[in-house]
Design a protein around this nucleic acid. Structure first.
Length: 567
RNA sequence: CGGGGUGUAGCUCAGCUUGGUAGAGCGCUUGCUUCGGGAGCAAGAGGCCGUAGGUUCGAAUCCUAUCACCCCGACCA
């Protein structure tokens, strides 16, 4: 491509409303332009990178045996009403009416539509298993779009859906997709981790996320420092301590703690460590009443775990202060497990404490030297807390460290959640009607482009991995308009590389060298060839890799350039 | 959805407190000189100051409403 004809719009200044590096660089390098909140135009150079990502995804999914199709982005409401998600989805789903006053949604995901297709066309187990995918624009009306295309409202996603006669075949395909994703992320050339995940609203059993590690990532990952364990903190398991609870050593004692309501205040006031204290949260129970959750003072409640507990209401709701006052006859700051008037669940770590400090269920008072089983009932225990850095890894191998990640892919074994609601069945070998097992597998295409940049840039701009660069190599001729030799050499190299099927850009815009180099660095082309009279006099081109400190001279031949590109 | 902030030239912003009819840098056009890390000089083009009301002799500036966008939080197949 000749840059003089490529409509490349780079800028020196960073647009004011870009927070993260990838967003700033994509705007500056002319990859994207904002149309509205969470809405972006992909300019020609940006689209080239996007299409290269799509190509990798297509190649690996095709290789894994998935079939590409294309579903509508506009969905009739009936389908979503049938699955029950018309009500569940809330404002995140963009809804509108057509001229006949019928309800529609712009598809945020396609489980309903693919289920509809499969129930229409699939009759027999002989037609299974099957895995359909599409690469398509989705819309989710995010409450707060941000970080450019990392969290936009309209975005391009690869979504795949597989259907199976039984759970074991679903598990087989899940592994198949998992390795296809591994190949995709390997080919993208990024540092990523596969982490155990919560399946969220979409439901289902097993679920893993593919995260690109980056400090600006929105997700926190708990990763073992020496072992293979990795999980999104939402899903990270906290095991009970292996050592037995110490024996009670102190007598229970009432302490006056006027005005000391938070754990931090009490800890300071009584001069006890935060992790020697038990705090009590009160939430709505599944039966409509109140439930107490006991946590160690330094721990935080994990809401995802909490709502899965049978006694706790989903969604999680903190009890109103008036309701707590009524049940405990004291204020929220002084609650504790001793004489607790409501059902109580203790996190493993809180239940492992002895001689602990807690609220006395009496205003302006706490208790110290409290022991489970002696001063109050042995509690029902559960894993309810957020994992902490330094915790033992649940697989018994190493301890937990935190990383930030950008979710680039997510794979789920959905089971029958949707196929049951949507009535997706075939006849099996014995002529029995069977509800199918379903899996779904997503990759955020547009987000990946930004995520790669978050991991690969420097002060001068983007540094693309070869696999997804918009051009492999850029030719920068110095003084092309003045020197016939330079022009001839640049044109001939450009023609040769193009003919060899190499994706090449020729900067024939007539810019000064500094401007050319600055643009080449900013847009992130991995290889650069500079052609000038000085070098040509020695029969040499100058070669520089985008990551290299210094340029080097190579023989002025197409073969020498091709060799560099392959290296 | 709660809290905070910003809308002035293509971009980044100043001007607003104390009302008097609009500025800078970058970019763009033309010419000359330059030409290995975003060149210099000169001359230009470009803005109903987000929108609608109101106050005033007079509003970018004060008031009200509204819209858009950004940040923090909550939320997130």
């Amino acid at each position: 491509m000749r840059l003089s004809k490529f409509s490349l719009h780079t800028t020196k200044e960073t647009p004011a409303d870009a927070e993260v590096v990838s967003h700033q660089l994509m705007l500056r390098a002319g990859y994207i332009r904002k149309l509205g909140a969470g809405l972006y135009t992909w300019l020609p150079i940006g689209l080239r990178t996007l299409q290269r990502i799509e190509t990798i995804v297509r190649e690996e999914l095709d290789r894994a045996g998935a079939l590409e199709l294309l579903m509508p982005s506009v969905h009739p409401a009936e389908l979503w009403q049938q699955s029950g998600r018309w009500q569940v989805m809330g404002d995140e789903m963009l809804r509108f009416k057509d001229r006949h006053d019928n309800d529609f949604a712009y598809g945020p995901t396609h489980e309903e539509v693919i289920c509809h297709h499969v129930r229409q066309d699939f009759r027999s187990y002989r037609q299974l298993p099957v895995n359909f995918y599409q690469i398509q624009t989705k819309f989710r009306d995010e409450r707060r779009p941000r970080f450019g295309v990392m969290r936009s409202r309209e975005f391009i996603m690869k979504d795949a859906y597989s259907f199976h006669l039984d759970a074991s075949d679903l598990a087989r395909e899940y592994e198949n997709m998992r390795s296809a994703y591994t190949r995709i992320f390997d080919r993208l050339g990024v540092d990523y981790r596969i982490v155990q995940a919560d399946s969220g609203n979409i439901g289902g059993s097993r679920s893993e996320e593919f995260h690109i590690l980056a400090g600006s990532g929105e997700d926190l990952l708990a990763v073992s420092d020496t072992g293979p364990y990795a999980a999104n903190v939402e899903a990270a398991v906290c095991l009970p301590s292996s050592s037995a609870r110490p024996a009670a050593g102190a007598a229970m004692e009432l302490v006056s703690t006027p005005g000391q309501k938070t754990c931090e205040q009490v800890s300071k006031f009584m001069n006890v460590a935060l992790d020697a204290k038990v705090k009590l949260l009160v939430v709505k129970g599944a039966d409509g009443g109140l439930v107490g959750i006991a946590l160690r003072g330094d721990h935080q409640l994990n809401e995802v775990k909490a709502i899965k507990h049978p006694l706790i209401a989903d969604p999680l709701q903190l009890a109103a202060p008036e309701d707590v006052q009524q049940a405990f006859n004291c204020e929220v700051g002084y609650l504790g497990p001793v004489n607790c008037p409501i059902p109580l669940i203790a996190d493993h770590a809180a239940a492992a404490l002895a001689d602990f400090v807690c609220g006395a269920n009496q205003n302006d008072h706490h208790l110290k030297g409290v022991n489970w089983g002696r001063d109050c009932a042995e509690p029902q225990t559960a894993d309810l807390r957020m994992v902490c850095e330094g915790d033992a890894s649940p697989d018994g191998n190493g301890s937990i460290r935190f990383y930030r990640g950008i979710e680039g892919g997510h794979i789920f074994q959905l089971g029958r959640k949707y196929t049951e609601a949507m009535d997706v069945k075939v006849l099996d070998e014995s002529g029995q009607s069977v509800t199918l097992e379903m899996g779904c597998y997503g990759i955020g295409i547009t987000r990946l482009a930004a995520a790669v940049i978050e991991q690969s840039y420097d002060a001068n701009g983007i540094i693309w991995p070869d696999a997804i660069a918009p051009f492999q190599v850029i030719i920068c001729p110095i003084g092309m308009d003045k020197s016939d030799a330079v022009r001839a050499a640049a044109e001939s190299l450009y023609t040769d590389l193009s003919a060899a099927g190499i994706s090449v850009a020729l900067d024939d815009r007539g810019n000064r060298p500094g401007a050319m180099f600055a643009d080449a660095d900013l847009i992130g082309i991995p290889h650069r060839i500079v052609i000038g009279d000085k070098g040509l006099a020695q029969q040499q081109y100058e070669y520089k890799h985008r990551r290299a400190e210094k340029a080097e001279m190579i023989p002025a031949s197409t073969a020498a350039v091709v060799e560099k590109l392959g290296a």
